[in-house]
Design a protein around this nucleic acid. Structure first.
Length: 430
RNA sequence: GACCCUGUCGUCUAGCCUGGUCUAGGACAAGAGCUUUUCAAGCUCUCGACACGGGUUCAAAUCCCGUCAGGGUCACCA
């Protein structure tokens, strides 16, 4: 039975790298019908915070990962102590006293070659003579990372350890501890790291790092996961869009890339847009309602849901991030559109009183106010005036929406309604 | 500095294991154009890479060696 674990430390939010590690553990585990264990590595009592635990659990659920078992290292100190005593007894560890009289347990590193067979990278050789003796239990009584990690992975029967590349150099130290404790070794697989655009580690400086930030910016979890998946694995067949469920069927850990990848927000935006296009407007509405309410664009307790859904459909194919909807569609909610100065300069600097006046009047006289009739009426107007359609389309769009870009003009007019449309046009009639 | 990992278009990658089908394929980005309505959507096209040097071989992106470059780790943090 395959058992994998994801072991975050609650000293910060779940970040992109952690989410990616969780994803690959999840893929492997699902493809092997195994168990997914979540372990909170909260041995650092100073830096570990309950709110980070909550945030991490929330983000994991948002990504769609659920765990079969959950452990907290802070509740397992007794186990580490027992295992350290075992090493003390069999002579592979010794006690070191600090000047204040505090005791730490130190592992005596034997001199030998250590071979690790990494599922992704193949065999890696280390020379333990380069490794100094390792602290197992710190003088404050808490275990060190490498020690707690080994004790837990062994006691939790973890069969495959899938983690970031930055742990490669921890591996020989851990292997030594496994051997000293008499535990059998799990399989290791080290994932390449994700880099920021500057080539270094992904950091706040080079972009948002928390998974929750991406949620707040309006990325769909499916899209984020799809992107993370593509960062070091490819389904083959030149496919760019793939769900986690589909990936589970095709996944083979041996085909995970070895090279670190740069996080590219542009491609994430593209993938997010691909998902947004196909998303159920009902679900998008659920995400959008709080945002629109915060802007006082709608009253969450009393709004026209069908109307909102229609607007979402109007925009969803062109949104890179769901949250862009709030800004792009503002003219549907505001009493008056906010006119972009550059757009005004370009399209409304000449006097269009006659054209706008005529169009407003024709709209008002429309027997049936539907998209097709609006367009017909507009086409007839420009024919009567003897001008090109686009000569009037752009100014009208700016007058109605304040922007030079947006959904098709006739749909905009339809959803704005007869009254608001003509009122906004008449504002420009002298 | 030592040790370890990695090196295909600007970016993510396919191909590499099992040399020939690769004058290296796809996607994002960028540029150009089309869309008798915009683009931030759609369509078309263009630009653009096997890090370098040796070797093995009839043949190397693919195998071997070296160099260089990038990254990671060297805590009583995790």
């Amino acid at each position: 039975m395959v058992r994998v674990r994801f072991a975050p430390s609650p000293t910060g939010n779940l970040h992109i790298g952690g989410g990616r590690t969780a994803l690959f553990n999840w893929l492997f585990c699902q493809s092997q019908a195994g168990k997914f264990i979540l372990r909170i590595e909260d041995t650092d009592q100073e830096r570990s915070k309950k709110e980070y635990v909550d945030e991490i659990l929330f983000s994991l659920k948002w990504l769609g990962f659920n765990w079969d078992e959950l452990y907290y290292q802070s509740q397992r100190f007794q186990n580490y102590r027992e295992q350290a005593d075992k090493l003390l007894k069999n002579g592979s560890a010794y006690i070191e006293r600090s000047p204040e009289g505090k005791e730490a347990v130190i592992y005596k590193v034997p001199q030998k070659k250590i071979l690790v067979n990494d599922l992704i990278r193949g065999q890696i050789e280390f020379d333990s003579s380069l490794i100094k003796d390792q602290v197992l239990i710190k003088s404050d009584g808490t275990p060190t990372y490498n020690f707690a990690c080994v004790v837990d992975d062994a006691q939790m029967n973890i069969t495959h350890i899938i983690r970031g590349d930055d742990h490669i150099s921890n591996t020989p130290k851990q292997v030594l501890i496994y051997e000293a404790l008499g535990f059998s070794l799990p399989q290791f697989a080290h994932l390449p790291l994700i880099m920021g655009v500057d080539g270094g580690r992904l950091s706040k400086r080079t972009g948002a790092t928390a998974i929750s930030d991406y949620r707040k910016m309006g990325y769909l979890s499916e899209a984020l996961l799809n992107y993370l998946l593509l960062l070091s694995w490819a389904p083959g067949d030149n496919r760019e869009l793939i769900t986690v469920a589909e990936a589970v069927k095709l996944f083979d850990i041996k085909h995970v890339n070895k090279t670190s990848a740069t996080f590219d927000l542009k491609k994430l935006d593209w993938i997010n847009n691909q998902y947004l296009k196909l998303a159920d407007p009902q679900l998008l509405a659920e995400e959008l309602i709080p945002l629109l309410a915060a802007k006082h664009y709608i009253d969450p307790d009393n709004y026209d849901r069908d109307y909102l859904l229609s607007l979402i459909k109007l925009f969803q194919a062109r949104l890179p991030r769901l949250n862009d909807f709030v800004e792009w569609s503002d003219f549907f909610f505001l009493e008056e559109p906010v006119i972009d100065p550059a757009a005004k300069e370009k399209y409304l600097s000449q006097d269009l009183s006659r054209e706008f006046g005529m169009f407003a009047q024709r709209l008002n006289n429309l027997a049936s106010f539907d998209i097709a009739s609006i367009e017909t009426s507009f086409r007839e107007l420009v024919a009567d005036l003897g001008i090109e359609a686009k000569k009037l389309i752009h100014p009208v769009r700016v007058a109605l929406t304040g922007k030079t870009i947006g959904p098709g003009l006739f749909e905009v007019i339809y959803y704005l309604g007869k009254e608001r449309s003509s009122r906004r046009l008449l504002k420009w009639v002298k």
